[in-house]
């Protein structure tokens, strides 16, 4: 599933703050949180782990087939919005 830019303005149902954490914590925690959520909800993740945003998150979300959207909120800081589709 490629990135979806129209997620950018969607209000998230859940947020996850993993600032300062290194891999595999951000992906693992996001995965756990997504498992607990209902289909159709949107999760917002705050992270400052560039390598996770470039590699781990896209590959994990591709595998799960969830649309997502990455916004760079500052140098080395990112917000990822993920929609749980199923």
């Amino acid at each position: 599933m490629p990135e979806e830019k129209n997620l950018e303005n969607v209000k998230p149902d859940e947020t996850l703050d993993v600032m300062g954490e290194t891999c595999p914590i951000p992906e693992a925690m996001a995965h756990k949180k997504l498992n607990k959520m209902k289909a159709g909800q949107v999760l917002e993740v705050y992270t400052d782990h560039a390598a996770a945003v470039e590699n781990s998150f896209p590959s994990m979300l591709n595998k799960l087939n969830y649309p997502y959207c990455v916004t760079k909120t500052g140098p080395g800081e990112f917000t990822i919005k993920i929609k749980k589709t199923s």
């Binding site: 917002e44 500052g74 800081e77 917000t79």
Partner: peptide, 10 residues
Amino acid sequence: MAAPKRKNHN
């Protein structure tokens, strides 16, 4: 909602 504005850490 957006992450809080950060200071310059450089």
